[in-house]
Nucleic acid binder design. Sequence first.
DNA 1: TTGATTTATTGGAACGTTCCATTTATAGGC
DNA 2: GCCTATAAATGGAACGTTCCAATAAATCAA
Lengths: 347, 347
Amino acid sequence: MASRPKATILDIAREAGVSKSTVSLVLQGSGLIRPETAVKVRKAIEDVGYVYNRGAANLRKAHSNVIGMVINDLTNPFFAELAVGMERVFQSAGIVPFIANTAENPVRQEEVLKSLMEQGVAGLIVSPARGTTPGAFRRLEMAGLPVVFAMRRLPESRIPVIAPDNHRGAFLATQHLIGKGHRRLAFFGGSSDLVVYHERLGGFREACETLGIAAGDRLIFEGETSRKGGIACMETALAMAAPPTAALCFNDAVAFGAMLALRKRGLEPGADFAVVGFDDVAEAEHYMPALTSVAVDSAGLGERAAHVMLKMIQSRTTRAEDHIGAVNLVVRDSCGPDLRTGMGDAA
Amino acid sequence: MASRPKATILDIAREAGVSKSTVSLVLQGSGLIRPETAVKVRKAIEDVGYVYNRGAANLRKAHSNVIGMVINDLTNPFFAELAVGMERVFQSAGIVPFIANTAENPVRQEEVLKSLMEQGVAGLIVSPARGTTPGAFRRLEMAGLPVVFAMRRLPESRIPVIAPDNHRGAFLATQHLIGKGHRRLAFFGGSSDLVVYHERLGGFREACETLGIAAGDRLIFEGETSRKGGIACMETALAMAAPPTAALCFNDAVAFGAMLALRKRGLEPGADFAVVGFDDVAEAEHYMPALTSVAVDSAGLGERAAHVMLKMIQSRTTRAEDHIGAVNLVVRDSCGPDLRTGMGDAA
DNA sequence: TTGATTTATTGGAACGTTCCATTTATAGGC
DNA sequence: GCCTATAAATGGAACGTTCCAATAAATCAA
């Protein structure tokens, strides 16, 4: 059954007793058509169960209305939020964004990018997978396709970037920790193949230097950017002879993991060890204890990225300015009371 | 700059000194081509920076290799997991799935479906938005497009469904609660425009009836399927003259909300009030207290849905059997100790 | 009435592929 | 050497649109 030969505008034309050109005009909502004719045509469209063939249309128009979003990890609510923000603005522009997940896999990313291009997308918003090679986007640039990076960037690339102010966020968080009286600080999670990592770590370092934390009292623990990674970091940190008393975590997932590891050791996050996260995912607010974290407004960044993309398409350019989004530290309970006036020195 | 006229297979043909047909054959990996010729052509492809135009190809082939996934809420990790499961199997079949989010909005869903169809997808996997009208998928059926529903279903529809055994899951959870000694039970969250809601509520009811809970001791609280909804449900429940002592929640988000509301009231989830969730998202395990929940293996269901879709496409049919996935109750700490032997009757 | 102007409609070429039917080249059998 | 069989490459028609240039119909000024 089913699968009868699909109806085309010629079928509609025959049904309505007009020419295919007229049908095409109606489809595009042209004002040149007499209203009664348009009505007649629209009825025929309905009757034959027509579905528009955008592929055929693009063959002539060379101007598709689909935009691809390539996301490195859809299961991370942080990136899902980003996608939702983008969708919001595309929707009101009558554009349907197609999302594809790369699962943090550069090979998969290559496939996805290729497929999207073949589909004839008008532009691409990408949060590149970790370990993406610098040349991965050369083909896109060659094709003159508008591309913007969101949240993440590549080491050296002329592609515009929409991202939060990672450096400042980390600086603020570290400053907060030091203000609480901590003198031996750790940075948990992330790895150096991510530009974001260097940015956040840079903010951490600068705050330490500026505020007089000795180099030997700044402990860096690389690790997975997940709960699991956070657990691992905390465990190795606590096993040290002179463990840190506070940690800035690469992201909230790591922070949750770190707090979990504390509990497992019988320590109370906040009181016995201060933890700060990054990203401020929805969960941070509801955790026990509520997580102090650097809020980055990912939906807002998504919207911004979408706007930039729209503008690039409209002005047929492949360049645009970077946009660094504001961040702010949301103080909750995971850093406990002030160490100097509070329950006295731990460690 | 950029945007020079895009290279076509004719440009490649000229560059390589062969005919367009030969290039086409090479592109399709035909064995009819002399290896040396193929090499020559492939070099030309590289040189001119060619990108395949799948739209043009589909015009003849009428057999695209893209599959659309329409998800009602991408920010819910539960659905994101589903998407990831599907992707896994499509990837190994050389198919790139495009994900689109409807944000639980039927109008948006209509647009998305339309756009995907116009794009010429080979099939659609859909988790329908709440409030979807029964006729929303008529057009797809008319077009003979393979469609499968995942996780959710529509009241009356012949479209195959891949979903967890909601009834049984709810039954098991309720049984667990009753086994713990609870005699006054609530069902929190969800609303009756969702088929899932009726399924889960049905399991709850059946368990209550079978195990001798009086009709007056089964309290139903409709509400949003979010943390917020859970908070609201718990608050109205606790305000009752004779409040329940345990609740089965529509999903984990509702359960988290319910526990939050308990804490706000100074009550301890588990000890003072038993809470069970549904879906068993990753977070459930790490929550304080760890949430007892009905695990549904969403990634597994995603894989199953993808397999069914692949089979439908291959056999050019629009029908397939439903598939009800196994569920199992994961007991953790949110139902506390046994009421009969434990801390005595609350409430 | 005639010609000019505006309003609606239309045919046909083009877009970049695929695929069938041919053609051309290469090899094999006698 | 010729005929046949096989291998490799090719031209042309189609696919479903858009859009330009052209036509047809209706309106208007004189």
